[in-house]
Design a protein around this nucleic acid. Structure first.
Lengths: 147, 147
DNA sequence: TATTGTTATACTCTATAACTATA
DNA sequence: TATAGTTATAGAGTATAACAATA
Protein backbone atom coordinates (compact mmCIF):
# COMPACT_ATOMS: atom_id res chain seq x y z
CA UNK A 1 0.00 0.00 0.00
CA UNK A 2 2.91 2.38 0.69
CA UNK A 3 4.63 3.71 -2.41
CA UNK A 4 7.64 1.73 -3.54
CA UNK A 5 10.17 4.53 -3.92
CA UNK A 6 10.54 8.06 -2.65
CA UNK A 7 7.73 8.03 -0.08
CA UNK A 8 7.53 11.75 0.46
CA UNK A 9 7.95 13.06 3.99
CA UNK A 10 4.76 14.78 5.00
CA UNK A 11 4.00 17.06 7.90
CA UNK A 12 1.15 15.74 10.03
CA UNK A 13 -0.62 18.79 11.42
CA UNK A 14 -3.22 16.78 13.39
CA UNK A 15 -1.01 14.28 15.18
CA UNK A 16 -0.75 16.26 18.39
CA UNK A 17 -4.47 16.88 18.80
CA UNK A 18 -6.37 14.91 21.42
CA UNK A 19 -9.49 15.00 19.25
CA UNK A 20 -7.69 13.51 16.28
CA UNK A 21 -6.13 10.76 18.34
CA UNK A 22 -9.53 9.98 19.86
CA UNK A 23 -11.01 9.53 16.40
CA UNK A 24 -8.16 7.36 15.14
CA UNK A 25 -8.15 5.18 18.26
CA UNK A 26 -11.94 4.81 18.24
CA UNK A 27 -11.92 3.86 14.54
CA UNK A 28 -9.17 1.33 15.17
CA UNK A 29 -11.14 -0.21 18.02
CA UNK A 30 -14.31 -0.32 15.99
CA UNK A 31 -12.66 -1.86 12.92
CA UNK A 32 -11.11 -4.61 15.02
CA UNK A 33 -14.28 -5.37 16.93
CA UNK A 34 -16.34 -5.55 13.75
CA UNK A 35 -13.87 -7.93 12.15
CA UNK A 36 -13.48 -10.00 15.29
CA UNK A 37 -17.24 -10.36 15.75
CA UNK A 38 -18.25 -10.79 12.12
CA UNK A 39 -19.38 -14.38 12.73
CA UNK A 40 -21.81 -13.29 15.45
CA UNK A 41 -23.89 -11.30 12.98
CA UNK A 42 -24.22 -8.28 15.26
CA UNK A 43 -23.24 -4.64 14.88
CA UNK A 44 -21.39 -2.86 17.67
CA UNK A 45 -24.52 -1.06 18.80
CA UNK A 46 -26.44 -4.35 18.82
CA UNK A 47 -23.73 -5.97 20.92
CA UNK A 48 -23.77 -3.05 23.34
CA UNK A 49 -27.56 -3.26 23.62
CA UNK A 50 -27.40 -6.98 24.28
CA UNK A 51 -24.95 -6.49 27.13
CA UNK A 52 -27.05 -3.74 28.69
CA UNK A 53 -30.16 -5.94 28.61
CA UNK A 54 -28.17 -8.84 30.03
CA UNK A 55 -27.07 -6.69 32.97
CA UNK A 56 -30.53 -5.11 33.43
CA UNK A 57 -33.37 -7.56 32.74
CA UNK A 58 -36.61 -5.69 32.08
CA UNK A 59 -34.89 -2.51 30.96
CA UNK A 60 -36.81 -0.38 28.44
CA UNK A 61 -35.68 1.02 25.11
CA UNK A 62 -35.55 4.56 26.42
CA UNK A 63 -33.49 3.55 29.42
CA UNK A 64 -30.98 1.79 27.19
CA UNK A 65 -30.81 4.83 24.96
CA UNK A 66 -30.06 7.15 27.86
CA UNK A 67 -27.45 4.80 29.27
CA UNK A 68 -25.37 4.31 26.13
CA UNK A 69 -26.31 7.37 24.09
CA UNK A 70 -28.62 5.94 21.46
CA UNK A 71 -31.56 8.08 20.39
CA UNK A 72 -35.02 6.69 21.08
CA UNK A 73 -35.77 6.77 17.38
CA UNK A 74 -32.75 4.61 16.63
CA UNK A 75 -33.60 2.10 19.34
CA UNK A 76 -36.76 1.04 17.55
CA UNK A 77 -35.36 -0.84 14.53
CA UNK A 78 -32.51 -2.02 16.74
CA UNK A 79 -34.77 -3.70 19.29
CA UNK A 80 -37.05 -4.98 16.54
CA UNK A 81 -34.13 -6.68 14.85
CA UNK A 82 -33.01 -8.37 18.05
CA UNK A 83 -36.56 -9.57 18.73
CA UNK A 84 -36.92 -10.84 15.17
CA UNK A 85 -33.74 -12.88 15.55
CA UNK A 86 -34.98 -14.40 18.77
CA UNK A 87 -32.30 -12.81 20.96
CA UNK A 88 -34.55 -10.73 23.20
CA UNK A 89 -38.18 -10.67 24.35
CA UNK A 90 -40.38 -7.65 25.02
CA UNK A 91 -43.15 -7.63 27.63
CA UNK A 92 -45.22 -4.58 28.64
CA UNK A 93 -44.33 -2.96 31.97
CA UNK A 94 -47.11 -0.39 31.62
CA UNK A 95 -49.33 0.88 28.85
CA UNK A 96 -46.52 2.27 26.76
CA UNK A 97 -43.17 0.83 27.88
CA UNK A 98 -41.73 -2.54 27.02
CA UNK A 99 -39.37 -4.40 29.33
CA UNK A 100 -36.64 -6.23 27.43
CA UNK A 101 -35.05 -9.54 28.44
CA UNK A 102 -32.61 -11.92 26.82
CA UNK A 103 -33.84 -15.24 25.51
CA UNK A 104 -31.74 -18.35 26.12
CA UNK A 105 -30.21 -17.88 22.70
CA UNK A 106 -29.56 -14.25 23.52
CA UNK A 107 -27.81 -15.21 26.75
CA UNK A 108 -25.48 -17.58 24.93
CA UNK A 109 -24.74 -14.93 22.34
CA UNK A 110 -24.14 -12.27 25.00
CA UNK A 111 -21.54 -14.51 26.61
CA UNK A 112 -19.75 -14.83 23.29
CA UNK A 113 -19.96 -11.08 22.79
CA UNK A 114 -18.26 -10.55 26.14
CA UNK A 115 -15.48 -12.87 25.01
CA UNK A 116 -14.90 -10.92 21.79
CA UNK A 117 -14.96 -7.62 23.63
CA UNK A 118 -12.35 -8.95 26.05
CA UNK A 119 -10.13 -9.89 23.10
CA UNK A 120 -10.67 -6.44 21.63
CA UNK A 121 -9.73 -4.81 24.93
CA UNK A 122 -6.53 -6.86 25.07
CA UNK A 123 -5.60 -5.53 21.64
CA UNK A 124 -6.18 -1.93 22.72
CA UNK A 125 -4.00 -2.36 25.78
CA UNK A 126 -1.23 -4.29 24.01
CA UNK A 127 1.15 -1.34 23.65
CA UNK A 128 0.26 0.55 26.83
CA UNK A 129 2.27 0.59 30.03
CA UNK A 130 0.36 -1.10 32.85
CA UNK A 131 0.36 1.83 35.25
CA UNK A 132 -0.84 4.49 32.85
CA UNK A 133 -3.26 2.17 31.07
CA UNK A 134 -5.28 1.36 34.17
CA UNK A 135 -6.56 4.92 34.52
CA UNK A 136 -7.22 5.47 30.83
CA UNK A 137 -10.95 4.55 30.74
CA UNK A 138 -11.65 6.89 33.67
CA UNK A 139 -9.71 9.70 32.03
CA UNK A 140 -11.66 9.30 28.83
CA UNK A 141 -14.91 9.28 30.75
CA UNK A 142 -14.03 12.65 32.25
CA UNK A 143 -13.85 14.06 28.75
CA UNK A 144 -17.48 13.47 27.85
CA UNK A 145 -19.25 13.09 31.19
CA UNK A 146 -21.31 16.00 32.43
CA UNK A 147 -19.57 17.81 35.24
CA UNK B 1 -34.67 14.63 29.28
CA UNK B 2 -34.24 12.58 32.45
CA UNK B 3 -37.39 11.06 33.90
CA UNK B 4 -39.12 13.16 36.55
CA UNK B 5 -39.59 10.56 39.22
CA UNK B 6 -38.12 7.21 40.10
CA UNK B 7 -35.22 7.17 37.66
CA UNK B 8 -34.32 3.53 37.89
CA UNK B 9 -30.79 2.59 38.89
CA UNK B 10 -29.22 0.69 36.05
CA UNK B 11 -26.05 -1.35 35.87
CA UNK B 12 -23.68 -0.07 33.21
CA UNK B 13 -21.80 -3.11 31.93
CA UNK B 14 -19.69 -1.15 29.42
CA UNK B 15 -18.45 1.71 31.57
CA UNK B 16 -15.13 0.09 32.43
CA UNK B 17 -14.18 -0.80 28.87
CA UNK B 18 -11.52 1.25 27.15
CA UNK B 19 -13.22 0.64 23.80
CA UNK B 20 -16.54 1.99 25.04
CA UNK B 21 -14.96 5.08 26.58
CA UNK B 22 -13.07 5.71 23.35
CA UNK B 23 -16.31 5.67 21.39
CA UNK B 24 -18.13 7.96 23.82
CA UNK B 25 -15.25 10.43 24.00
CA UNK B 26 -14.79 10.44 20.22
CA UNK B 27 -18.51 11.01 19.65
CA UNK B 28 -18.51 13.82 22.19
CA UNK B 29 -15.56 15.46 20.47
CA UNK B 30 -17.14 15.09 17.07
CA UNK B 31 -20.52 16.46 18.14
CA UNK B 32 -18.91 19.53 19.67
CA UNK B 33 -16.65 20.20 16.70
CA UNK B 34 -19.53 19.87 14.25
CA UNK B 35 -21.66 22.30 16.24
CA UNK B 36 -18.78 24.70 16.83
CA UNK B 37 -17.84 24.77 13.14
CA UNK B 38 -21.31 24.75 11.62
CA UNK B 39 -20.89 28.26 10.23
CA UNK B 40 -17.76 27.24 8.29
CA UNK B 41 -19.73 24.84 6.11
CA UNK B 42 -17.16 22.06 6.38
CA UNK B 43 -17.38 18.51 7.65
CA UNK B 44 -14.73 17.16 10.01
CA UNK B 45 -13.04 15.21 7.24
CA UNK B 46 -13.03 18.32 5.04
CA UNK B 47 -11.47 20.36 7.83
CA UNK B 48 -8.82 17.69 8.37
CA UNK B 49 -8.06 17.61 4.66
CA UNK B 50 -7.73 21.39 4.52
CA UNK B 51 -5.21 21.40 7.36
CA UNK B 52 -3.15 18.63 5.75
CA UNK B 53 -3.00 20.53 2.46
CA UNK B 54 -2.11 23.72 4.30
CA UNK B 55 0.82 21.96 5.98
CA UNK B 56 1.88 20.15 2.79
CA UNK B 57 1.38 22.24 -0.34
CA UNK B 58 1.33 20.06 -3.44
CA UNK B 59 0.26 16.92 -1.57
CA UNK B 60 -1.79 14.41 -3.58
CA UNK B 61 -5.13 12.78 -2.75
CA UNK B 62 -3.52 9.41 -2.10
CA UNK B 63 -0.94 10.89 0.23
CA UNK B 64 -3.63 12.64 2.23
CA UNK B 65 -5.61 9.44 2.43
CA UNK B 66 -2.65 7.49 3.77
CA UNK B 67 -1.81 10.19 6.30
CA UNK B 68 -5.23 10.55 7.89
CA UNK B 69 -6.86 7.23 7.00
CA UNK B 70 -9.28 8.19 4.26
CA UNK B 71 -9.78 5.69 1.45
CA UNK B 72 -8.75 6.81 -2.04
CA UNK B 73 -12.29 6.32 -3.25
CA UNK B 74 -13.61 8.66 -0.61
CA UNK B 75 -11.02 11.33 -1.33
CA UNK B 76 -12.44 11.93 -4.81
CA UNK B 77 -15.76 13.63 -3.98
CA UNK B 78 -14.07 15.27 -1.01
CA UNK B 79 -11.37 16.98 -3.09
CA UNK B 80 -13.89 17.77 -5.83
CA UNK B 81 -16.10 19.55 -3.32
CA UNK B 82 -13.24 21.65 -1.98
CA UNK B 83 -12.18 22.60 -5.51
CA UNK B 84 -15.74 23.48 -6.46
CA UNK B 85 -15.98 25.81 -3.47
CA UNK B 86 -12.75 27.53 -4.43
CA UNK B 87 -10.84 26.41 -1.34
CA UNK B 88 -8.14 24.37 -3.07
CA UNK B 89 -6.49 24.11 -6.49
CA UNK B 90 -5.27 20.99 -8.28
CA UNK B 91 -2.31 20.98 -10.66
CA UNK B 92 -0.78 17.88 -12.28
CA UNK B 93 2.50 16.66 -10.79
CA UNK B 94 2.77 13.82 -13.30
CA UNK B 95 0.46 12.11 -15.75
CA UNK B 96 -1.92 10.82 -13.14
CA UNK B 97 -1.40 12.63 -9.82
CA UNK B 98 -2.70 16.02 -8.85
CA UNK B 99 -0.88 18.28 -6.40
CA UNK B 100 -3.28 20.13 -4.13
CA UNK B 101 -2.81 23.64 -2.76
CA UNK B 102 -4.92 26.07 -0.81
CA UNK B 103 -6.33 29.14 -2.51
CA UNK B 104 -6.27 32.46 -0.68
CA UNK B 105 -9.83 31.79 0.45
CA UNK B 106 -8.79 28.30 1.56
CA UNK B 107 -5.93 29.74 3.61
CA UNK B 108 -8.25 32.11 5.44
CA UNK B 109 -10.68 29.31 6.11
CA UNK B 110 -7.92 26.97 7.31
CA UNK B 111 -6.88 29.58 9.86
CA UNK B 112 -10.42 29.74 11.17
CA UNK B 113 -10.58 25.94 11.27
CA UNK B 114 -7.46 25.90 13.44
CA UNK B 115 -9.15 28.34 15.79
CA UNK B 116 -12.24 26.13 16.17
CA UNK B 117 -10.13 23.03 16.67
CA UNK B 118 -8.22 24.82 19.43
CA UNK B 119 -11.51 25.66 21.16
CA UNK B 120 -12.60 22.04 20.77
CA UNK B 121 -9.34 20.85 22.31
CA UNK B 122 -9.83 23.16 25.26
CA UNK B 123 -13.21 21.58 25.87
CA UNK B 124 -11.76 18.08 25.80
CA UNK B 125 -9.09 19.01 28.31
CA UNK B 126 -11.38 20.99 30.60
CA UNK B 127 -11.81 18.24 33.20
CA UNK B 128 -8.39 16.61 32.94
CA UNK B 129 -5.51 17.09 35.35
CA UNK B 130 -2.63 18.88 33.66
CA UNK B 131 0.01 16.24 34.27
CA UNK B 132 -1.95 13.24 33.05
CA UNK B 133 -3.57 15.12 30.18
CA UNK B 134 -0.32 16.07 28.51
CA UNK B 135 0.54 12.48 27.65
CA UNK B 136 -2.95 11.49 26.57
CA UNK B 137 -2.61 12.06 22.79
CA UNK B 138 0.57 9.98 22.71
CA UNK B 139 -1.05 7.21 24.71
CA UNK B 140 -3.98 7.10 22.32
CA UNK B 141 -1.65 7.02 19.36
CA UNK B 142 0.01 3.92 20.77
CA UNK B 143 -3.35 2.17 20.64
CA UNK B 144 -3.78 2.35 16.88
CA UNK B 145 -0.29 2.92 15.54
CA UNK B 146 1.48 -0.01 13.95
CA UNK B 147 4.16 -1.35 16.24
C1' DT C 1 2.98 -4.87 -11.84
C1' DA C 2 1.82 -1.42 -8.64
C1' DT C 3 -0.27 2.92 -8.00
C1' DT C 4 -3.54 6.89 -8.94
C1' DG C 5 -7.66 8.50 -9.78
C1' DT C 6 -12.25 7.26 -10.59
C1' DT C 7 -17.27 5.43 -10.43
C1' DA C 8 -20.74 3.04 -8.22
C1' DT C 9 -22.60 1.31 -4.27
C1' DA C 10 -23.78 -0.04 0.45
C1' DC C 11 -23.72 -0.17 5.41
C1' DT C 12 -23.39 1.84 10.06
C1' DC C 13 -24.05 5.40 13.09
C1' DT C 14 -26.10 9.49 14.24
C1' DA C 15 -29.55 13.14 14.00
C1' DT C 16 -34.09 15.73 13.59
C1' DA C 17 -39.00 16.35 12.94
C1' DA C 18 -43.40 14.88 13.67
C1' DC C 19 -46.92 11.77 15.18
C1' DT C 20 -49.70 8.67 18.59
C1' DA C 21 -50.60 7.02 22.98
C1' DT C 22 -49.87 6.89 27.75
C1' DA C 23 -47.97 8.59 32.43
C1' DT D 1 -47.26 18.47 30.25
C1' DA D 2 -43.67 15.11 29.90
C1' DT D 3 -42.40 10.65 28.41
C1' DA D 4 -42.37 6.19 25.42
C1' DG D 5 -42.62 4.34 21.33
C1' DT D 6 -42.87 5.03 16.48
C1' DT D 7 -42.12 6.46 11.44
C1' DA D 8 -39.68 8.72 8.00
C1' DT D 9 -35.73 10.78 6.49
C1' DA D 10 -31.12 12.71 6.03
C1' DG D 11 -26.20 13.45 6.60
C1' DA D 12 -21.70 11.83 7.66
C1' DG D 13 -18.15 8.42 7.78
C1' DT D 14 -16.45 4.27 6.20
C1' DA D 15 -16.04 0.20 3.20
C1' DT D 16 -15.49 -2.82 -1.13
C1' DA D 17 -15.32 -3.96 -6.03
C1' DA D 18 -14.06 -2.81 -10.44
C1' DC D 19 -12.13 -0.04 -14.16
C1' DA D 20 -8.84 3.07 -17.02
C1' DA D 21 -4.63 5.41 -17.28
C1' DT D 22 -0.04 5.96 -15.84
C1' DA D 23 4.40 4.91 -13.13
Amino acid sequence: MAPRSNPRKLVHPLEGYLGYQLRRAANFMQADLVRRSADLGLTIVEMSTLLVIEANPGVTQSEIGRLIAIKRANMVPLAAGLIERGLILASPVDGRSLGLRLTAVGMDLAARVRQRVAENEALLFRNLADDTAKSLPRQLQQIWREA
